[in-house]
Design a protein around this nucleic acid. Structure first.
Length: 427
RNA sequence: GGAGAUGUGGCCGAGCGGUUUAAGGCGCACGCCUGGAAAGCGUGUUGGGGGCAACCCCUCGCAGGUUCGAAUCCUGUCAUCUCCGCCA
């Protein structure tokens, strides 16, 4: 959520930002609404002030045992007028807030210009794709041939875009998650959290999924309208909702391994096979709550944490600086990591690390108290560390052997009971 | 699912419908005192909004309502705790 005071003083920047994101200018509309609201508020406060004064006089008169009924006359007209202005003010306030809540975050100056994902800027590459002397299989073929990935069964149970894995492959995914969690907690200083994945609409609003992107999420028919989280970012970041922490508590670093639920509305026909795009997948997420001055530093740190996982797994990847046209709603700046997938002969997204400034903190009212006792909004960041399902895909395809078996990466062996190779189960 | 209890500034805790503009205490910050400290004394200490400013408005879990006037009365709702039932 943008600061209305800031919008008032930076109308050009607001409209320029909308343009960069490929949207229409909005500042004149906001300004006129804000002006109307402040006008009503001024008149309302004047009346409230009168009411308070008279009310006090009534109290004083009664205390002395005097008759105060003559004071009621003016109060009788003030009362309904106050109520009317209150309603007017509330309506304008709601209208303004509802509108501002739909505006995306202001992009960092370091974000490259570009119209869509084709114009993202590659920052660096790491690792060299393995040269195979055989035709690489796609992970879904590998998994099905191993007898440990079963999309038919998943479809029977839940419909399209779900997966069923079993045996060593299921364990390999768990191994990946444990390896990631252990690395982030033991090496990178994150605190492991087991958060709820079923959250209130208010929580989804806090991180920016609502009100604009409700169509992407699964709702329950629970009377509280609980929703399934599309990422643990939602639960973890909302730790700060209506909370004031001490400056010395920062940074707060959480990581969590949770299932994520996405409708994938609008992606019909894309990645219809396999684990790449499913309604339910597991992800290890990192969230940082930091002092505003540490935002940039924290973003680089988190990007490093995500890269480190790929490096330890020896998976080739590249880093992209997302361009203005491809940036998410709440983000100021985002780096994506794309991992090499031999069967697709291309890099595919496996992590996304974003800094959100005070955008989310403002929505959820998350603050810290500085040394002088003043409160400020915290800055929030989130990054995948990594998308576990897609990491499984990457390991399968990059570590596949000609006979269809999969070599277990060295760092995962301790988590696989020492198993070195995943082979087909006998049918 | 059923029954009951409780929600008041960072914490504890008062609060007959009108000087509550939320007592008192604890904690914290600053000052006085001291060689230094403790104790003592004094001052400040919820959060948000509007205004150049003086200052004003809102905020007692949340949302409605009653009233000239609500922390206080009414309704709904949420959270916490206790007991019963069910349950991994």
């Amino acid at each position: 959520m943008l600061d209305i005071k800031w919008i008032r003083e930076n109308t050009d920047a607001v409209d320029l930002n909308m343009k960069k994101r490929g949207a229409e200018p909005v500042s004149s509309y906001i300004l006129s609404l804000d002006e109307k609201r402040r006008d009503v508020m001024g008149r309302l406060q004047e009346l409230q002030s009168q009411r308070n004064k008279i009310s006090k006089e009534v109290g004083q008169a009664k205390a002395k045992g005097e008759d105060a009924s003559h004071l009621f006359e003016s109060m009788k007209t003030i009362g309904p007028e106050v109520k009317k202005l209150e309603e007017e003010e509330r309506a304008l306030q709601t209208e303004l807030k509802d509108f501002v809540a739909t505006l995306p975050n202001i992009l960092d100056a370091a974000v490259p210009e570009g119209k869509d994902d084709t114009e993202n800027v590659e920052v660096r590459r790491w690792g060299t794709p393995r040269t195979l002397n055989f035709e690489p299989k796609a992970h879904y073929d590998l998994g099905e041939d191993l007898g440990q990935l079963d999309f038919e069964t998943a479809a029977k149970i839940s419909g399209s875009r779900f997966a069923w894995s079993s045996g060593d492959l299921a364990r390999l995914e768990r191994a990946l998650a444990m390896f990631m969690l252990d690395t982030h907690t033991e090496q990178n200083g994150f605190t492991e959290v087991n958060p709820p994945v079923l959250v209130t609409p208010q929580t989804m609003y806090g991180t920016g999924q609502l009100p604009k992107f409700g169509d992407d999420a699964f709702y329950t028919n629970d009377e509280r309208d609980l929703m399934l989280t599309p990422t643990a970012e939602v639960s973890l970041t909302n730790y700060m909702a209506d909370r004031i922490v001490q400056e010395s508590d920062l940074p707060i670093k959480f990581c969590a391994w949770t299932p994520c639920f996405r409708k994938e509305a609008g992606s019909a026909g894309r990645d219809t096979r396999g684990l790449i795009r499913v309604h339910q997948f597991n992800k290890v997420e990192m969230v940082q709550i930091v002092h505003p001055e540490k935002s940039n530093e924290a973003l680089q740190f988190m990007l490093g944490c995500a890269e480190d996982i790929l490096q330890k797994l020896n998976l080739p990847y590249r880093v992209l600086n997302l361009c203005t046209g491809d940036m998410g709603f709440g983000s100021e700046q985002t780096f994506d990591l794309e991992v090499w997938l031999p069967a697709q002969n291309t890099y595919r997204e496996i992590s996304s690390c974003s800094k959100c400034g005070d955008f989310q903190a403002r929505r959820m009212n998350g603050r810290f108290k500085d040394k002088d006792g003043k409160n400020h909004f915290v800055h929030t960041l989130n990054g995948s560390g990594l998308a576990v399902g897609r990491t499984l895909v990457a390991v399968m395809e990059n570590y596949q052997n000609e006979d269809g078996s999969i070599t277990v990466p060295d760092v995962l062996k301790p988590y696989m009971g020492g198993k070195e190779i995943i082979k087909a189960v006998s049918k």
